[in-house]
Structures are given as structure tokens and as C-alpha cells.
Design a protein around this nucleic acid. Sequence first.
DNA 1: ATCAGTTATAGTCATAATGACTAAAAGATA
DNA 2: TATCTTTTAGTCATTATGACTATAACTGAT
Lengths: 237, 237
Amino acid sequence: MKEDTVITAVNSAGYPAPAAITADPVVFAPWEGRLAVLLAPRRETPYEGQWALPGGFMNPEEEPEETAQRKLTEKTGIGSVYLEQLATYGSPRRDPRGWIPSVAYLALTHAAVLREKESEARWFPADQLPDLAFDHARIIADGIDRLRGKLWYSNIAVTLLPRRFTLVEARRLYEAISDVRYEVSNFRRTLEQAEIIRPTEEVQQGLTGRPARLYEFVEQQPSWSSRRSRIPGTLRD
Amino acid sequence: MKEDTVITAVNSAGYPAPAAITADPVVFAPWEGRLAVLLAPRRETPYEGQWALPGGFMNPEEEPEETAQRKLTEKTGIGSVYLEQLATYGSPRRDPRGWIPSVAYLALTHAAVLREKESEARWFPADQLPDLAFDHARIIADGIDRLRGKLWYSNIAVTLLPRRFTLVEARRLYEAISDVRYEVSNFRRTLEQAEIIRPTEEVQQGLTGRPARLYEFVEQQPSWSSRRSRIPGTLRD
DNA sequence: ATCAGTTATAGTCATAATGACTAAAAGATA
DNA sequence: TATCTTTTAGTCATTATGACTATAACTGAT
């Protein structure tokens, strides 16, 4: 495809159609104590050389979520991750190539799944992003908002931590996402009382100090927490 | 267009493209004490004669949200409503005509905006829906979930009530949406304490009994409530 | 005018949750 | 064994919540 070429499409009924649809995963992971986003360099026009979300064109017969996962694997080598739909960006001017809406996905995983040697993709701290292609900066900002919004009302963080983790690890993650410091003791009480996490029998040997107990998430699949708060009392009967 | 005709599209770069994209508003309003959804009868194949969301095809150069509003007005005569993106339904088999993703919108308004005489659209109780075209039953279910989820954590109900309202009106609405009965006194306390609503000087003369004070929403635009709950104590500094 | 009958508002109060601390436990090291 | 470090495990005053009870403001009938 030549530079500055606008792609168009007309359907068999004679009406203009979108030139294509893309699916773009916004992949988050804890990385060096911070929340990081996975970006891949663009290898083609437009925005060649700039960083972008590791997404791409949907194929016919493909669910958008499948596209997000497939493109993520193609561009970064990363396998199956947690995906939830974020939003669709459909402004007709968001892509210089033409009318190409994008379905964005919130994706969560661990930083370790990326083999940096075998991929051109890289982690970037969520608050220090490079120049991004298309409207991807906006999409990432919306992804961060979603993640923050669900953090304390779901066990969404389950996908960002190993199966067993210490309270310090969990607290660092929550602090990295929300950009707020929590009081250690109350942090544990809140998560335990909301039945988001549960202690196990295991402890982890630290380098120094008392060994930390290992915790696990109560449910395995991310879901909204059952605890209702701020909702007024109901009537019996 | 003939029945059972599949529409296809190929873009100018030679790749298959979606045949079209639609935008579908899920319009809610309080109606006869219940939560109701606005539906319009389909006048064309496929699903001719069945009830469907009042949406339709996006034009090029159009934002999806504009499409949702335009189609709503075309099909029901209703003017500007509150719109927020709900989700995109992109399964390649969701529309028998071909590859046609739909961007669904949550729309909120008052039942009175529909002039029933001048439109074929109708309100249906959200828990008594007729057979629906496409995957619209699923879309509406997701819309109800979204509305319930935000009910107590935002002032989203502002768009469903008149500018000034009584506590009983507000409570009936909250009960209709959440399908839960609330204790009167605690209901008021919760909404006032969360600074979602605020009392005014006015009172409304009822048919019988003590007149009810009129309330208003604190902010005018729907937004997430500032009150943080279940989030553990932070550290000072 | 007074007295029910209604519908709203305005408390009360025991219990639970929250925010801010303090104490103690369990390891490594001097 | 003393000391330093990192975690866990309380304590406690304050606030929020759930479930009631009391009072206020109106209408209509005696």
C-alpha cells in the first residue's frame, strides 16, 4: 500500500462500507513496581516507526476478541491473556487510511510473559508513554480509567499477580494502579473482608525480616465483587 | 434488497471489509412505575415485523454516537438524549445479511418524550420484552446490567427523572431499576450523604397526606460519584 | 373545630465498618 | 542474646449502616 493512500469500500448493495475494522488490546502488567503498557513498533505506514497498540485488522468470520488475541500473539509472541472489551473508537478521522473503526480491549497479564529477546514489543510505564500512533494514547488512557475503576470493586487484579502472592506484592500493585499509598493493615483487612483474597498455609522466605504469608484470590475468574457498599438498607419481605 | 441476500464488501486494497456498521441505542425510561425499553418494529427484511432497537446503519463521516442519536430520532421522533457507549457486538454471524458489527449505546430519557400517536415505537417493560430481532435481547440485557451497576455509584439517574423530583419518585425509580425495595429513611440518607441529591426549598402538593419536598441532583451531568467506599485508608503525607 | 387516615420527614440506637495507630512475631545478623 | 527489619495482629475512637419509632403536614369526615 502506498503512503497517503486512502482505502475505501463499497458493499454489494451499493452503499459505502468501512474500509476495515481493527481490534486493539491494551495490555497491562506490573513491571518494575509500576503499571506498564505493552507497545509494538509500527513496521508500516502510516505512523511507521512509532509505537502503537499490538492490534490489527479483523478477518471476516472472526470474533473481535479473537482478533485482539491473535494480533497480540503475532506481534509480541504472548499467549492467552485475560481480555475484556473496553470501547469502540469509530471516529471517521481516527485513521488516515480511511474509515476504520477500532474495538479496543483491556488485556491483563504478567510482564514475564514477554520474551524481550524474541520480540520488538516493549513495556512502557503507564505514566511515561512515548508518542503513539493513531488515537492510541486516548485508548490507553481509557484503559487505565477502567482498570482503576474496577480495582476495588472486582478481583480484576487476579490476572496481574501470580497464583500465590504476598500482601506486599498485592499492595504494591494496587498502589501502582491507583497511584495512592495504602495503610498496610487496613489494606489487608479490606481485601480479606471483601472476600477478594484469602490467606493460604504457605509463607514466603524473604531476604530479611519476618516471612510473608502467601495469599490467593478467592475466585479465579475476574468478576465484580459481591460486596455491596453504599447501597441503602432494603426492606425485608 | 431481496430476502436472504448476503451483503459483502471488499475494500480498495483488495481485502474483505465489513458490509456495514450499525449503531443501536438501548433507550431506557421510567414508565408506569417500571423500567421500560424503547423498541421499534422492523419494516424490512430480515426480521420484518419483529421488534428491534431503534438503530441503523452508520454513514461515512459520522461518529457512531451521532448515528445512534440520528437513528433514534428518525425512528421514534425523540430528540436529544443522554448517550454513553455500551459495547460493540461484532460476531460475524450476528446479522444474517453479513458481516455487520453494531456499536450499542445506553440511552436514558423520560417516557414522555415519545409521542405515541406519531410513532410506531413503543415502550416495553424491561422484564417483559417481546421477541427481538438480531442479538438485541442480549444487548438490552447488557444495558440493564450497566444501568444497575452504575445506579448507586453515579448520578446516572439524573437523566431519568425531571429536574425536581420527590424522594418517592426517586425511590420508585431506583427500585424499578434494581428490582429491590429500599427502606425510605435510609434511602434518603444514603443519597444525600453521597451528595448525589440535595433538597430544594420547594414542596409538591400531593393528593393526600403531607406534601413532599422536592429534590434535585447535585451535579447536572451524569458522572461517577466522588464518594469512595470500600477502599482502604490511605497514608497521610 | 376535632379526629381519623395518609403520606413524608426526622429522629433513635444497636451493630458494623473505617481510619489511624500500637504491639508483637519471626526471621537475619552482629 | 541483642538488635534490626519486615510482617502480622491487635486496639480504639469515629463514622456509617440497618432497622425501627416518632412527629409533621396535609385531606376529608364527623
